[in-house]
Amino acid sequence: MTQTNSTVAIQPSELGVNPLLEITNLNVYYGESHILRNVDMGVAAGKMVCLIGRNGVGKTTLLKSIMGLLKPRQGMIKLMGEPILTRTPDQRARSGIGYVPQGREIIPRLTVGENLLLGLEARPGKGRKAEIPEEIFDLFPVLKTMLWRMGGDLSGGQQQQLAIARALMGKPRLLVLDEPTEGIQPSIILEIEAAVRRIVETTGIGVLLVEQHLHFVRQADWYYAMQKGGIVAAGPTSELSNDVVQRFLAV
């Protein structure tokens, strides 16, 4: 475990020469309250990175800043080497970030099929076919049977799978997941875990995950621990000892 008192250096060996996502010195405020303090972090392609920390330390704020829903006061966010801070959320989605927000945000009065088709919007280039590829149903078979149901009528677990599938429709380079297991029954948590792990291994995209569920955290390759709006610890999840978990995960 590499831990220092103030900030943690991004491990060059882990991130590779061209990191997928690179965040340096990010500072975000809500009005006058300082939410994110000097955040440095990164995600490499083909890796799953988990962000841990108790409630209210700024994990969701960090993800929202990556997506462009919040405007940082200071700092730099680069995707595949290009600065993206001036881009709007929809431009960032088309640059290759797939976002699965907290609470899933399924569009309620659109069918499951329509929700999935919306995922295609992020895919660059014209002349794309408006159909849902089989891989999506391989990952989440339950969706195939309910294409005509309204998104708002699905159960929480089904909505979560739909939200991940929708993000994958856009063929993102980076998948950002905000607490995908929150309020979901244990059997479906395992299914979602397996699906995310499979996505990382088969497609080689990067995954940035905010998670409280320890079993899921252990699936990740690398972790960053947050406290009071700053990153206070980082390292491979294999080195994630129980006392670190005690300290940074809400119980």
Binding site: D90, A93, E105
Partner: peptide
């Protein structure tokens, strides 16, 4: 139509539609 779908999505959830890559403006 595709634009109709976009309009329905944006009217129901503007922020999420933007995060999906729909040009909301």
């Amino acid at each position: 139509t595709a634009w109709g779908l976009r309009i329905r999505a944006v009217t129901q959830n503007r922020n999420m539609s933007a995060c999906l890559g729909i040009p909301t403006a």
